[in-house]
Design a protein around this nucleic acid. Sequence first.
DNA 1: TACTGATAATCAGCATGCTGAGCAATATCG
DNA 2: CGATATTGCTCAGCATGCTGATTATCAGTA
Lengths: 155, 155
Amino acid sequence: MRDNNEMPGHLARRFQQIAVAVFLAEVEEAGFDLTPVQYAALSAIRTNPGIDQVTLAGLIAYDRTTITGVVDRLVQKALLVRHASSRDRRARELQITEAGKRTLRAITPAVEAAQRTMLRGLTEKEGAELMRLLRKATAAGNALSRAPLRDAELR
Amino acid sequence: MRDNNEMPGHLARRFQQIAVAVFLAEVEEAGFDLTPVQYAALSAIRTNPGIDQVTLAGLIAYDRTTITGVVDRLVQKALLVRHASSRDRRARELQITEAGKRTLRAITPAVEAAQRTMLRGLTEKEGAELMRLLRKATAAGNALSRAPLRDAELR
DNA sequence: TACTGATAATCAGCATGCTGAGCAATATCG
DNA sequence: CGATATTGCTCAGCATGCTGATTATCAGTA
Protein backbone atom coordinates (compact mmCIF):
# COMPACT_ATOMS: atom_id res chain seq x y z
CA MET A 1 0.00 0.00 0.00
CA ARG A 2 1.30 3.33 -1.12
CA ASP A 3 1.83 5.92 1.59
CA ASN A 4 -1.01 8.38 1.71
CA ASN A 5 1.36 11.32 1.39
CA GLU A 6 2.51 10.04 -1.99
CA MET A 7 -0.94 9.94 -3.55
CA PRO A 8 -1.96 12.56 -6.13
CA GLY A 9 -5.25 13.08 -4.32
CA HIS A 10 -3.54 13.89 -1.06
CA LEU A 11 -1.08 16.27 -2.72
CA ALA A 12 -3.95 17.98 -4.54
CA ARG A 13 -5.82 18.60 -1.30
CA ARG A 14 -2.68 19.73 0.47
CA PHE A 15 -1.74 22.26 -2.21
CA GLN A 16 -5.29 23.59 -2.30
CA GLN A 17 -5.34 23.81 1.51
CA ILE A 18 -2.18 25.91 1.47
CA ALA A 19 -3.45 28.01 -1.45
CA VAL A 20 -6.64 28.93 0.44
CA ALA A 21 -4.77 29.72 3.64
CA VAL A 22 -2.32 31.96 1.76
CA PHE A 23 -5.14 33.71 -0.09
CA LEU A 24 -7.08 34.47 3.07
CA ALA A 25 -3.98 35.65 4.92
CA GLU A 26 -2.88 38.04 2.17
CA VAL A 27 -6.39 39.39 1.71
CA GLU A 28 -6.91 39.92 5.41
CA GLU A 29 -3.56 41.66 5.73
CA ALA A 30 -4.71 44.03 3.00
CA GLY A 31 -7.75 44.82 5.14
CA PHE A 32 -10.40 42.88 3.23
CA ASP A 33 -12.73 40.03 4.05
CA LEU A 34 -13.26 38.04 0.86
CA THR A 35 -12.91 34.32 0.21
CA PRO A 36 -11.41 32.77 -2.94
CA VAL A 37 -14.84 31.87 -4.33
CA GLN A 38 -16.19 35.31 -3.60
CA TYR A 39 -13.23 36.88 -5.37
CA ALA A 40 -13.63 34.62 -8.41
CA ALA A 41 -17.36 35.33 -8.63
CA LEU A 42 -16.96 39.08 -8.23
CA SER A 43 -14.22 39.16 -10.83
CA ALA A 44 -16.24 37.14 -13.35
CA ILE A 45 -19.29 39.34 -12.85
CA ARG A 46 -17.29 42.48 -13.46
CA THR A 47 -16.11 41.03 -16.76
CA ASN A 48 -19.62 39.79 -17.65
CA PRO A 49 -22.18 42.24 -16.29
CA GLY A 50 -25.74 40.95 -16.25
CA ILE A 51 -24.63 37.33 -16.25
CA ASP A 52 -27.03 34.79 -14.73
CA GLN A 53 -26.03 32.45 -11.93
CA VAL A 54 -25.79 29.23 -13.92
CA THR A 55 -23.50 30.82 -16.51
CA LEU A 56 -21.42 32.31 -13.74
CA ALA A 57 -21.10 28.90 -12.09
CA GLY A 58 -19.86 27.43 -15.38
CA LEU A 59 -17.35 30.23 -15.94
CA ILE A 60 -15.57 29.64 -12.66
CA ALA A 61 -16.37 25.92 -12.31
CA TYR A 62 -18.49 26.03 -9.20
CA ASP A 63 -21.61 24.07 -8.48
CA ARG A 64 -24.75 26.11 -9.05
CA THR A 65 -26.08 25.32 -5.57
CA THR A 66 -22.87 26.67 -4.07
CA ILE A 67 -23.13 29.86 -6.10
CA THR A 68 -26.50 30.66 -4.56
CA GLY A 69 -24.94 31.10 -1.13
CA VAL A 70 -21.85 32.88 -2.45
CA VAL A 71 -23.97 35.44 -4.30
CA ASP A 72 -26.14 35.84 -1.19
CA ARG A 73 -23.10 36.86 0.83
CA LEU A 74 -21.75 39.20 -1.86
CA VAL A 75 -25.13 40.92 -2.04
CA GLN A 76 -25.12 41.11 1.77
CA LYS A 77 -21.77 42.89 1.56
CA ALA A 78 -23.23 45.28 -1.06
CA LEU A 79 -20.62 44.28 -3.64
CA LEU A 80 -23.28 42.91 -5.99
CA VAL A 81 -26.90 43.48 -6.88
CA ARG A 82 -29.20 40.67 -8.03
CA HIS A 83 -32.43 41.35 -9.85
CA ALA A 84 -34.83 39.37 -11.99
CA SER A 85 -34.14 39.23 -15.70
CA SER A 86 -36.77 40.82 -17.92
CA ARG A 87 -36.25 38.33 -20.75
CA ASP A 88 -36.33 35.19 -18.58
CA ARG A 89 -38.20 35.50 -15.34
CA ARG A 90 -36.47 32.40 -13.95
CA ALA A 91 -33.05 33.97 -14.18
CA ARG A 92 -31.36 36.53 -11.92
CA GLU A 93 -29.07 39.06 -13.51
CA LEU A 94 -25.96 39.88 -11.50
CA GLN A 95 -24.32 43.31 -11.55
CA ILE A 96 -21.25 44.49 -9.68
CA THR A 97 -21.71 47.67 -7.63
CA GLU A 98 -19.33 50.61 -7.41
CA ALA A 99 -18.22 49.31 -4.01
CA GLY A 100 -17.59 45.95 -5.65
CA LYS A 101 -15.40 47.54 -8.33
CA ARG A 102 -13.47 49.50 -5.73
CA THR A 103 -12.93 46.35 -3.67
CA LEU A 104 -11.70 44.40 -6.68
CA ARG A 105 -9.24 47.11 -7.65
CA ALA A 106 -7.92 47.47 -4.11
CA ILE A 107 -7.61 43.76 -3.48
CA THR A 108 -5.79 42.81 -6.67
CA PRO A 109 -2.23 43.29 -5.34
CA ALA A 110 -2.97 41.00 -2.40
CA VAL A 111 -4.43 38.36 -4.70
CA GLU A 112 -1.38 38.50 -6.97
CA ALA A 113 0.92 38.28 -3.97
CA ALA A 114 -0.95 35.21 -2.78
CA GLN A 115 -0.43 33.50 -6.14
CA ARG A 116 3.31 34.08 -5.82
CA THR A 117 3.43 32.95 -2.20
CA MET A 118 1.74 29.63 -2.91
CA LEU A 119 4.42 28.87 -5.52
CA ARG A 120 7.30 29.86 -3.31
CA GLY A 121 9.77 27.02 -3.11
CA LEU A 122 9.49 26.49 -6.85
CA THR A 123 11.72 28.16 -9.41
CA GLU A 124 10.13 30.36 -12.06
CA LYS A 125 10.37 27.51 -14.53
CA GLU A 126 8.95 24.95 -12.12
CA GLY A 127 6.03 27.21 -11.29
CA ALA A 128 5.19 27.57 -14.96
CA GLU A 129 5.49 23.83 -15.48
CA LEU A 130 3.22 23.12 -12.50
CA MET A 131 0.64 25.47 -13.98
CA ARG A 132 0.91 23.77 -17.36
CA LEU A 133 0.45 20.31 -15.88
CA LEU A 134 -2.48 21.39 -13.73
CA ARG A 135 -4.13 23.00 -16.77
CA LYS A 136 -3.63 19.82 -18.76
CA ALA A 137 -4.88 17.53 -16.01
CA THR A 138 -7.93 19.64 -15.22
CA ALA A 139 -8.78 19.95 -18.90
CA ALA A 140 -8.71 16.17 -19.24
CA GLY A 141 -10.78 15.65 -16.08
CA ASN A 142 -13.11 18.60 -16.58
CA ALA A 143 -16.24 16.53 -17.19
CA LEU A 144 -15.64 14.32 -14.15
CA SER A 145 -16.88 16.80 -11.57
CA ARG A 146 -20.43 18.01 -11.19
CA ALA A 147 -19.26 21.57 -11.80
CA PRO A 148 -17.24 21.54 -15.03
CA LEU A 149 -15.71 24.67 -16.46
CA ARG A 150 -17.91 25.97 -19.25
CA ASP A 151 -17.27 28.56 -21.88
CA ALA A 152 -19.84 31.35 -21.70
CA GLU A 153 -20.01 31.69 -25.50
CA LEU A 154 -20.91 28.05 -25.96
CA ARG A 155 -24.17 28.42 -24.10
CA MET B 1 -5.78 41.63 -14.54
CA ARG B 2 -4.89 38.02 -15.06
CA ASP B 3 -7.74 35.72 -16.03
CA ASN B 4 -8.97 33.75 -13.06
CA ASN B 5 -8.49 30.46 -14.88
CA GLU B 6 -4.78 31.15 -15.17
CA MET B 7 -4.19 31.59 -11.46
CA PRO B 8 -2.43 28.88 -9.46
CA GLY B 9 -5.09 29.09 -6.77
CA HIS B 10 -7.88 28.42 -9.23
CA LEU B 11 -6.03 25.50 -10.81
CA ALA B 12 -5.32 24.06 -7.37
CA ARG B 13 -8.99 24.13 -6.43
CA ARG B 14 -10.04 22.73 -9.77
CA PHE B 15 -7.63 19.80 -9.61
CA GLN B 16 -8.69 19.03 -6.05
CA GLN B 17 -12.35 19.27 -7.05
CA ILE B 18 -11.82 16.70 -9.80
CA ALA B 19 -9.71 14.51 -7.53
CA VAL B 20 -12.48 14.32 -4.92
CA ALA B 21 -15.16 13.63 -7.51
CA VAL B 22 -13.08 10.83 -9.04
CA PHE B 23 -12.33 9.34 -5.63
CA LEU B 24 -15.98 9.28 -4.60
CA ALA B 25 -17.10 7.85 -7.93
CA GLU B 26 -14.56 5.02 -7.90
CA VAL B 27 -15.26 4.18 -4.27
CA GLU B 28 -19.01 4.19 -4.77
CA GLU B 29 -18.70 2.00 -7.84
CA ALA B 30 -16.77 -0.48 -5.69
CA GLY B 31 -19.74 -0.51 -3.31
CA PHE B 32 -18.31 1.59 -0.48
CA ASP B 33 -19.25 4.83 1.17
CA LEU B 34 -16.05 6.48 2.34
CA THR B 35 -14.76 10.01 1.75
CA PRO B 36 -11.11 10.91 1.03
CA VAL B 37 -10.56 12.18 4.59
CA GLN B 38 -12.16 9.10 6.08
CA TYR B 39 -9.94 6.89 3.96
CA ALA B 40 -6.80 8.80 4.92
CA ALA B 41 -7.69 8.68 8.61
CA LEU B 42 -8.55 4.99 8.58
CA SER B 43 -5.36 4.18 6.72
CA ALA B 44 -3.18 6.18 9.13
CA ILE B 45 -4.82 4.57 12.15
CA ARG B 46 -4.19 1.09 10.79
CA THR B 47 -0.51 1.95 10.44
CA ASN B 48 -0.41 3.62 13.87
CA PRO B 49 -2.76 1.77 16.21
CA GLY B 50 -3.55 3.60 19.44
CA ILE B 51 -2.70 6.99 17.96
CA ASP B 52 -4.37 10.03 19.49
CA GLN B 53 -6.41 12.52 17.47
CA VAL B 54 -3.93 15.38 17.41
CA THR B 55 -1.11 13.15 16.18
CA LEU B 56 -3.44 11.68 13.59
CA ALA B 57 -4.37 15.16 12.40
CA GLY B 58 -0.69 16.03 11.98
CA LEU B 59 0.08 12.82 10.09
CA ILE B 60 -2.48 13.51 7.39
CA ALA B 61 -2.45 17.31 7.60
CA TYR B 62 -6.01 17.92 8.74
CA ASP B 63 -7.19 20.41 11.29
CA ARG B 64 -7.80 18.83 14.68
CA THR B 65 -11.33 20.22 14.87
CA THR B 66 -12.12 18.57 11.54
CA ILE B 67 -10.76 15.23 12.74
CA THR B 68 -13.24 15.17 15.62
CA GLY B 69 -16.15 14.92 13.19
CA VAL B 70 -14.36 12.52 10.84
CA VAL B 71 -13.58 10.13 13.68
CA ASP B 72 -17.17 10.45 14.91
CA ARG B 73 -18.42 9.21 11.57
CA LEU B 74 -15.90 6.39 11.33
CA VAL B 75 -16.90 5.21 14.80
CA GLN B 76 -20.53 5.49 13.73
CA LYS B 77 -19.74 3.17 10.83
CA ALA B 78 -18.01 0.76 13.25
CA LEU B 79 -14.70 1.03 11.37
CA LEU B 80 -12.95 2.51 14.42
CA VAL B 81 -13.14 2.42 18.18
CA ARG B 82 -12.23 5.39 20.36
CA HIS B 83 -11.47 5.03 24.04
CA ALA B 84 -9.76 7.10 26.70
CA SER B 85 -6.02 6.68 27.08
CA SER B 86 -4.86 5.28 30.40
CA ARG B 87 -1.64 7.31 30.42
CA ASP B 88 -3.25 10.62 29.49
CA ARG B 89 -6.87 11.04 30.40
CA ARG B 90 -7.24 13.96 27.99
CA ALA B 91 -6.37 11.84 24.97
CA ARG B 92 -8.49 9.33 23.05
CA GLU B 93 -6.74 6.31 21.59
CA LEU B 94 -7.96 5.25 18.18
CA GLN B 95 -8.01 1.64 17.03
CA ILE B 96 -9.15 0.22 13.73
CA THR B 97 -11.72 -2.59 13.95
CA GLU B 98 -11.77 -5.83 11.96
CA ALA B 99 -14.50 -4.33 9.80
CA GLY B 100 -12.24 -1.34 9.27
CA LYS B 101 -9.37 -3.54 8.14
CA ARG B 102 -11.64 -5.47 5.78
CA THR B 103 -12.96 -2.22 4.32
CA LEU B 104 -9.47 -0.86 3.78
CA ARG B 105 -8.32 -4.02 2.02
CA ALA B 106 -11.39 -4.16 -0.19
CA ILE B 107 -11.33 -0.49 -1.11
CA THR B 108 -7.66 -0.24 -2.06
CA PRO B 109 -8.05 -1.12 -5.77
CA ALA B 110 -10.71 1.58 -6.16
CA VAL B 111 -8.48 4.13 -4.45
CA GLU B 112 -5.54 3.26 -6.68
CA ALA B 113 -7.76 3.45 -9.75
CA ALA B 114 -8.91 6.90 -8.67
CA GLN B 115 -5.31 8.10 -8.43
CA ARG B 116 -4.70 6.98 -12.01
CA THR B 117 -7.95 8.49 -13.26
CA MET B 118 -7.21 11.93 -11.86
CA LEU B 119 -3.89 11.95 -13.75
CA ARG B 120 -5.39 10.80 -17.02
CA GLY B 121 -4.50 13.22 -19.75
CA LEU B 122 -0.91 13.33 -18.51
CA THR B 123 1.83 11.04 -19.69
CA GLU B 124 3.59 8.82 -17.18
CA LYS B 125 6.45 11.28 -17.05
CA GLU B 126 4.20 14.30 -16.68
CA GLY B 127 2.27 12.64 -13.86
CA ALA B 128 5.49 11.98 -11.99
CA GLU B 129 6.65 15.55 -12.57
CA LEU B 130 3.33 16.95 -11.33
CA MET B 131 3.69 14.88 -8.17
CA ARG B 132 7.25 16.10 -7.67
CA LEU B 133 6.26 19.74 -8.08
CA LEU B 134 3.27 19.38 -5.74
CA ARG B 135 5.48 17.71 -3.14
CA LYS B 136 8.00 20.52 -3.42
CA ALA B 137 5.40 23.29 -3.29
CA THR B 138 3.53 21.78 -0.35
CA ALA B 139 6.77 21.18 1.53
CA ALA B 140 7.69 24.85 1.10
CA GLY B 141 4.22 26.03 2.12
CA ASN B 142 3.63 23.48 4.84
CA ALA B 143 3.71 25.91 7.74
CA LEU B 144 1.33 28.35 6.05
CA SER B 145 -1.84 26.42 6.81
CA ARG B 146 -3.35 25.85 10.22
CA ALA B 147 -3.02 22.10 9.70
CA PRO B 148 0.59 21.43 8.68
CA LEU B 149 1.87 17.94 8.01
CA ARG B 150 3.73 16.72 11.07
CA ASP B 151 5.99 13.77 11.54
CA ALA B 152 4.71 11.46 14.27
CA GLU B 153 8.23 10.72 15.55
CA LEU B 154 8.96 14.39 16.11
CA ARG B 155 6.25 14.75 18.71
C1' DT C 1 2.52 21.59 46.90
C1' DA C 2 0.21 25.55 44.62
C1' DC C 3 0.59 28.18 40.43
C1' DT C 4 1.19 28.71 35.63
C1' DG C 5 1.34 27.43 31.15
C1' DA C 6 0.66 23.99 27.65
C1' DT C 7 -2.01 20.34 25.60
C1' DA C 8 -6.17 17.00 23.94
C1' DA C 9 -10.55 17.27 22.76
C1' DT C 10 -14.84 19.42 21.91
C1' DC C 11 -18.08 23.00 20.63
C1' DA C 12 -20.41 27.03 18.27
C1' DG C 13 -20.41 29.43 14.20
C1' DC C 14 -19.42 30.32 9.46
C1' DA C 15 -18.38 29.22 4.46
C1' DT C 16 -17.57 25.88 0.98
C1' DG C 17 -19.03 21.93 -1.77
C1' DC C 18 -21.79 18.14 -2.85
C1' DT C 19 -26.54 15.13 -3.80
C1' DG C 20 -31.09 15.07 -4.64
C1' DA C 21 -35.54 17.19 -4.71
C1' DG C 22 -38.82 20.76 -5.74
C1' DC C 23 -40.85 25.04 -7.90
C1' DA C 24 -41.58 28.30 -11.46
C1' DA C 25 -40.85 29.58 -16.04
C1' DT C 26 -39.47 28.60 -20.69
C1' DA C 27 -38.74 25.77 -24.83
C1' DT C 28 -40.05 22.10 -27.78
C1' DC C 29 -42.77 19.08 -30.19
C1' DG C 30 -46.95 16.49 -31.62
C1' DC D 1 -52.63 24.84 -28.61
C1' DG D 2 -51.41 21.59 -25.08
C1' DA D 3 -48.49 18.05 -23.14
C1' DT D 4 -43.77 17.27 -22.13
C1' DA D 5 -39.14 18.21 -21.38
C1' DT D 6 -35.80 21.38 -20.03
C1' DT D 7 -33.86 25.09 -17.49
C1' DG D 8 -32.77 28.66 -13.54
C1' DC D 9 -32.94 28.83 -9.00
C1' DT D 10 -33.62 27.43 -4.30
C1' DC D 11 -33.76 24.34 -0.41
C1' DA D 12 -32.77 20.42 2.90
C1' DG D 13 -29.28 17.58 4.35
C1' DC D 14 -24.64 16.01 4.87
C1' DA D 15 -19.44 16.36 5.18
C1' DT D 16 -15.37 19.12 4.99
C1' DG D 17 -12.52 22.86 6.73
C1' DC D 18 -11.66 26.89 9.19
C1' DT D 19 -11.52 30.50 13.64
C1' DG D 20 -11.92 31.11 18.25
C1' DA D 21 -13.49 29.68 22.76
C1' DT D 22 -14.01 26.35 26.58
C1' DT D 23 -13.12 22.32 29.49
C1' DA D 24 -10.31 18.88 31.49
C1' DT D 25 -5.91 17.32 32.22
C1' DC D 26 -1.02 17.30 32.36
C1' DA D 27 3.74 19.24 33.01
C1' DG D 28 6.98 22.30 34.83
C1' DT D 29 8.29 25.36 38.30
C1' DA D 30 8.49 28.60 42.31
